[in-house]
Design a protein around this nucleic acid. Structure first.
Lengths: 236, 236
DNA sequence: AATTATTTTTTGGTCAACCAATTTTATGTT
DNA sequence: AACATAAAATTGGTTGACCAAAAAATAATT
């Protein structure tokens, strides 16, 4: 009985938008819709799914955001011309069927940050160094007074990503950082900035400025090691 | 005169949604809007910015997607309670995120794939190997008959990401793959699969199966080197 | 005066009608 | 029959009116 109520609750709770996305996924799975195909018009979809056109448009917009479909005004909405398996995986992501583990997030963050700092060493300009220094100062001014500065910490890292001149890196970091932060607050990691962490930030700035790539990536690796170890301990 | 026309074109071309996001950014920059504050109601915003309420809603939805604002039904939309600097940076990124350079995409792909293959070596199960072999067979069956198999190629790589047991890696690869593919078709790279590429795919499978991490990542690196070199030549 | 109950207003959510660009179909011309 | 032209239907985009939940203001009660 409980189970039934719970299922009912789930169905009721699920947003109309997600219902439609799920249905479209079904159309793809059953082959009624193939990569490159034109989607049925919004009106037909809203009628078929018994839902308002607004919700259909919401769903399509969300899918478009992920590159799953592409809308041509006054013409139609088309399924992306990529492999059917990739499409289904993408839609699963959109529906947030998977929950990201903290370890997955940290592992990915590490690899993005290492690349980020390496490229930053190569590509930064004098103006960039000023930007990075400001970001560091902003962080230090809080942390050296014992004030939490998780955001400023991440902002410093994002600034490094900016120096890398690689917008994809920065965007992907932006995507996963909120997830990491929510895990931080759950697990209460990094509540106080250690002297070690503060020193590492300063070193990072120095090595990047000197274009000492190896040293900079080394510091970044040790800098992230603590979180990484904690994440690993969780997953066991 | 040209300049004027160009600017005019830019203004006209810029989507109403982005205009509104820019205005909201301005409200934040000038302190009229602070973290945690309630945004003016959608009707007021549409009136103030001289634009339909639909577009205001579009803009708010986009900002919500990036975690910049949070909407409570029948109550209001609230600016996220994070640092003003982080907010402004985030919102700038939202406005910038349009086109990624091919080099940025490939650089990021490389680092994700290298991590992906390394983890896959460690973590794959017997069932995974069957999955990967199927994916390889699927690729070979096309490519050994001289048929293009860009989709199957990427699916093989995506399967490796699956073996890594890191869902974040897989999701991020999924996000950038469509962008990379569109660049492929623009630049007509990878039109025919070379014997070298085919051999590398077979090697990748073999080394992953044997859990030979170093050899596998080495093959992956040379596998992606061609595209990387091409991307670098473009950016110069 | 404090608290509760009720009404009013505000606000995001939803819907149905309408618009303009596009595509398709029909019509006319050579 | 082939092509060009024009009318009709289709389709995503946009707007304004309306809905219900939430918040605020007002009235009633203790």
């Amino acid at each position: 009985m409980e189970k039934v109520l719970q299922n009912l609750r789930e169905v009721v709770t699920e947003k109309p938008m997600d219902v439609i996305i799920r249905q479209i996924k079904e159309l793809l799975s059953t082959g009624q819709l193939q990569p490159g195909d034109k989607l049925p018009p919004e009106r037909k979809l809203s009628e078929k799914f018994g839902v308002g056109r607004t919700h259909v448009r919401d769903a399509i917009r969300k899918l478009e955001f992920y590159g799953i479909v592409k809308t041509k005004p006054q013409s139609g909405t088309f399924v992306a011309s990529i492999g059917i398996t990739a499409l289904e995986s993408l839609i699963s992501d959109v529906l947030q069927i998977d929950v990201y583990s903290f370890l997955s997030l940290v592992e990915t963050r590490e690899v993005l940050e290492l690349q980020s700092v390496a490229l930053a060493c190569d590509r930064h300009t004098p103006a960039d160094i000023i930007k990075l220094e400001n970001s560091l100062t902003n962080y230090l001014s809080k942390v050296e007074h014992g004030v939490k500065a998780v955001e400023e910490d991440f902002m410093f890292h994002l600034t490094i990503a900016e120096l890398s001149k690689n917008k994809v890196l920065k965007s992907l970091l932006l995507i996963i950082i909120p997830d990491i932060l929510s895990n931080y607050s759950i697990f209460k990691v990094c509540d106080i900035a250690t002297d070690k962490a503060i020193g590492e930030h300063k070193l990072l700035f120095q090595y990047i400025k000197e274009r000492n790539c190896e040293a900079a990536t080394g510091v970044m690796k040790t800098h992230l090691k603590g979180v990484m170890d904690f994440a690993k301990s969780l997953s066991q």
